[in-house]
Design a protein around this nucleic acid. Structure first.
Length: 559
RNA sequence: UGGGGCGUCGUCAAGCGGUAAGACACAGGAUUUUGAUUCCUGCAUUCGGAGGUUCGAAUCCUCCCGCCCCAGCCA
């Protein structure tokens, strides 16, 4: 991995300065703290690459920590999926995976410490009253009648909360800060609530659970995190983060920095919408290749290196952004162009009969697996009397600018021979169903000894011995450029049953052994991933990854 | 209208008082056994706006404008 170091990252600047000033004993420890309540998507990749990338770059460490403080929404299946996704992106966290729930005991003691210091109290206001007492954006809040409850009484109540003596909603533990603060987060925030619910990891051990604000800072401190990186919406929480770490006897005081989350145009990123799409069966599951989930794009064939590079290119700042997905796709193409073996496939076949080729005879031709990389080797492809070309590679009454096949014109079949179209056969509806062509034996391999040139080169597939495959030509799930658009506005570009004919792999067997998740470049058609879910040697299924640039499309548009 | 943030090319993004990097997109051109790839070339006299300080401002000061976030016993 040769990730470039970009300067467009103010956090790296801060860390560099901290290091120069000898802070944190020269250590850099970050963490990636997802709540296991859904699948990770491309937006999370930014945070992952940032946190793990910084750890790697500064020779520090990044903890994977699950922020599992709300059993209502969380599930083991999300934990498993998240672990797999982070691994897939290429990052490591050492032996241990951390869980906020591992600190429940510590957290509880810190809460008691706060009560003992008179910095927290048990409050009996119900949710509705709490809201009323909180005040508004412009008006200060009112102090709870319980605010001056004696320490001993709060302690007793809190212990009984823990013991399960009270129903949900009857009591909460609140930090005693300032009900008149212009920052609403400081108006005596709730730090513990009663939830009589089993936790995926701690089971029935607890019936009180700590809130995010209380948990997060302390977890960071317990892990020795030096730089706690989160998204912009937590900026207003920073004073609370700092207040808490100052009041409680934790080993260190990490610093929180906020950055803007990644937004992509035309891309469904909200957890709510993704959940709806999955649960209401609009898609096959969280790993549906149309989805921008990490599991989805993995199945789609996006290489992890491309994602990492993308996250590097977009930078890290505080500005709201909506990045063009085109940049992502460019990163994917760039990576795949280097690594994907090329192969010929015909998606929309048009039969071609070579009139001067003897029936029953086959020829084996050399084809490069990568035109610019001979080290990737070559393979043999089969040529015979009957072959298929792409329907759109033939045009009647073609304009001069059309470089492909037309009646009377000569083109090159890639790695094979020059052929000339002699006759066009149509069915009763007038549709072209077959071409009769002649080939020039002297052009075997694709070059004419007499030096004559040909403008077009076509991909093709031999009828004999070709491999049929299924191709999922579906595209990314689009939504309006406006991310607020509803799921109803999604357009599906679904084409599940197209049949493709792949070049014969008789000699190299490369395709018959197509590895699931391996991405191939189908000549001129784009990049396709052998579907890791459905592919087997007997049943090849490909998902479209990204398309190639098509300047012929532009030429057509202009005319 | 309280508080916290943010405004540099179509989209990201460098720049931190010395006269606007780079990437994607876009537009031309060259090479090419796929109209791909690769390779050149062009693309902000101007930094949300208006004043001011200065020999000199995107960078400092003042005012104004616009956008985002916060009133879950979610994270």
């Amino acid at each position: 991995m040769e990730e470039e170091i970009t300067k467009s990252n103010f956090i790296k600047t801060i860390i560099t300065e901290d290091l120069e000033n000898g802070k944190n004993d020269g250590k850099v420890i970050t963490r990636f703290p997802p709540e296991p309540n859904g699948y990770l998507h491309i937006g999370h990749a930014k945070s992952i690459c940032l946190n793990f990338g910084i750890a790697r770059e500064f020779k520090g460490r990044c903890n994977l920590r699950f922020d599992d403080t709300n059993p209502e929404k969380e599930d083991q299946k999300y934990i498993d999926a998240i672990i797999e996704d982070v691994k897939w992106l290429g990052f490591e966290w050492g032996e241990t995976i951390h869980y906020a729930s591992d600190y429940f005991e510590n957290l509880y003691h810190f809460a008691e410490e706060l009560i003992e210091k008179g910095k927290a109290y048990v409050c009996s206001l119900n949710a509705e009253q709490m809201r009323a007492y909180r005040g508004t954006l412009t008006e200060p809040g009112k102090e709870s009648p319980d605010r001056n409850r004696p320490v001993e009484e709060s302690l007793d109540l809190f212990r009984r909360m823990k013991a399960g003596e009270f129903d949900e909603g009857t009591y909460v533990l609140r930090a005693k800060i300032d009900m008149a603060s212009p920052n609403i987060n400081l108006r005596d925030p709730i730090i513990y609530r009663i939830k009589k619910m089993a936790h995926p990891r701690t089971g029935d051990a607890w019936c009180i659970y700590p809130m995010y604000d209380f948990t997060h800072g302390i977890s960071d401190a317990l892990e020795g995190v030096t730089h706690s990186l989160c998204t912009l919406e937590f900026q207003d929480h920073r004073p609370l983060y700092d207040w808490l770490l100052d009041e409680v006897s934790v080993p260190c005081h990490p610093r929180q920095y906020e950055f803007a989350r990644m937004n992509l145009n035309f891309t469904v990123m909200s957890k709510r919408k993704l959940q709806k799409l999955v649960e209401q069966d609009y898609v096959e599951g969280w790993d549906d290749p149309r989805l921008p989930t990490l599991a989805g794009i993995r199945r789609r064939g996006y290489p992890p290196a491309a994602i990492r590079n993308f996250c590097n290119l977009i930078g890290v700042g505080k500005k709201e952004n909506r990045i063009d997905v085109g940049l992502l796709e460019n990163c994917v193409r760039e990576e795949l162009n280097e690594t994907a073996p090329r192969v010929m496939a015909v998606i929309n076949p048009l039969k071609v009969t070579i009139e001067n080729w003897e029936d029953g005879i086959t020829d084996e031709l050399d084809a490069l697996n990568h035109p610019q990389k001979p080290e990737m080797g070559k393979r043999k492809v089969l040529f015979s009397k009957h072959i298929y070309i792409e329907k759109e590679d033939f045009m009647e009454n073609a304009p001069k600018k059309f470089f492909r096949l037309s009646e009377g014109r000569e083109v090159r079949l890639r790695y094979a021979y020059f052929i000339t179209c002699k006759e066009v056969i149509k069915d009763e509806t007038g549709e072209v169903v077959e071409l009769i062509c002649s080939y020039d034996p002297a052009t075997r391999g694709g070059n004419a000894p007499d030096g004559r040139k040909v403008k077009g080169t076509l991909h093709w597939v031999s009828e004999e011995g070709s491999i049929p495959a299924k191709i999922n030509l579906y595209d990314r799930l689009f939504q309006d450029e406006d991310p607020e658009a509803d799921t109803e506005h999604f357009t599906e570009n679904l084409n599940p049953d197209s049949l493709v004919v792949l070049e014969n792999g008789k000699v190299e067997k490369s395709l018959e052994n197509a590895e699931p998740s391996m991405v191939y470049q189908f000549e001129r058609l784009g990049y396709f991933c052998a579907d890791s879910k459905e592919s087997s040697p007997a049943n090849l299924v490909f998902n479209r990854t990204v398309t190639l640039r098509d300047t012929w499309a532009k030429v057509k548009k202009k005319r």
